[in-house]
């Protein structure tokens, strides 16, 4: 069986591929660009090595931080900030897919203040994105000082593990579970699922942030809603009931790795296969596979960079670090 180090890279075949990793023989997908003398990729429809040669054996131009306009800022409760930011229509379009995120930074702060933030909504017609930020630490606190400008670097896409399954589900019942600030990226996923004619049930857990910041976004969506506290016995019982009664073919877990484990455990007891997709809680820092802060170990001990790598969800939950 295959023992190679090839996993799927979310950026493979994109306008940002090949990247810094290719230049240092550390490509996630291409065996030639891992310093081997043979082809052994899992094929993403394009040949990364060919593209690299066409670029003169150099990476493509990486993403750069762009000063962007804050169209609207709303503080909701004590610690949630919702920003509506003006971006190019192209970037808004690129950020429409579930799992998209960007790095944000105060214009006067150095790069170490870059903080990854999931996209809650993207409007490709207007060229706008909306982001909900939980004010927690040094980086997010610095964003509170942004009045009308903010530095934004993107697009990045690896906010979801098991993205492929979410992409392929059509005309099915899907359960989306979100907790706290992770309710924000669930909105993009729900919109995508509805677009693919799925019937969506949304479990909303207020978590530490409350859920007021998504009210506007979900108001017009045709979905079933349940407000539960998944840290309570009653909430978990209700979750079990919803899972047992619904014929879900996919469950989306938007919460901490602890929530992922709870949900995975519940799914394993259903007696039928249900696919699972989960948000990526690893500590993304550079987004380019360079800094190593998001490195996780899979079940078989392989080290993967979670800012770019798509791996099996079981591998992440059981082998990865517990984050979030």
């Amino acid at each position: 069986m295959s023992k190679n180090k090839i996993v799927t890279c979310i950026d493979a075949g994109s306008e940002y591929c090949p990247c810094y990793l290719a230049e240092s023989d550390e490509c996630i997908t291409c065996s030639q660009l891992q310093g081997n003398s043979f082809c052994d990729c899992n094929w993403s429809g394009v040949c990364i090595y060919q593209e690299y040669a066409w670029c003169g054996m150099k990476k493509k131009t990486p993403r750069e931080a762009i000063e962007s306009e804050i169209i609207e800022r709303k503080q909701i409760g004590d610690d949630v900030l919702v920003l509506r930011i003006g971006v190019s229509k192209t970037l808004a379009r690129q950020l429409k897919q579930p799992g998209s995120y960007v790095f944000l930074r105060h214009p006067e702060k150095p790069m170490i203040f870059d903080v990854p933030m999931s996209i809650m909504a993207a409007d490709a017609e207007k060229g706008e994105i909306a982001i909900a930020i939980h004010i927690l630490g040094v980086k997010t606190k610095s964003l509170l000082a942004c009045d009308d400008k903010i530095l934004l670097k993107g697009p990045y896409w690896n906010g979801l593990i098991g993205y492929k399954d979410l992409k392929n589900v059509t005309n099915q019942n899907v359960l989306v579970i979100g907790r706290g600030i992770a309710l924000a990226p669930a909105i993009l996923a729900i919109q995508y699922l509805l677009h693919n004619k799925n019937k969506v049930t949304f479990i909303i857990d207020q978590g530490r942030t409350g859920s007021a910041f998504i009210n506007e976004s979900i108001a017009a969506l045709e979905i079933d809603r349940h407000y539960l506290n998944l840290r309570s016995t009653g909430g978990l019982e209700k979750l079990n009931q919803i899972l047992a009664e619904g014929t879900y073919s996919l469950v989306y877990s938007g919460g901490s790795d602890f929530l992922h484990e709870v949900i995975k455990d519940r799914l394993s007891r259903l007696g039928r296969p249900v696919k699972m997709v989960a948000i990526n809680n690893h500590e993304l820092c550079c987004g380019e596979g360079v800094c190593g802060s998001c490195t996780a170990r899979t079940l078989n001990g392989q080290r993967v960079k979670m800012c770019k790598s798509q791996i099996d969800i079981e591998e992440m939950i059981e082998g990865g670090n517990c984050n979030g």
Binding site: S31, Q32, S37, C39, W43, G45, C47, Y49, Q50
Partner: peptide, 25 residues
């Protein structure tokens, strides 16, 4: 082939009958 090998040891993909871009390497 596939494409990467044709590039490394040849002049790149020449879109031959093996059609790796369409059917995979």
């Amino acid at each position: 082939g596939p494409m990467g090998n044709c590039l490394k040891y040849g002049n790149g993909c020449a879109m031959c009958i093996l059609r790796c871009p369409s059917f995979g390497p």
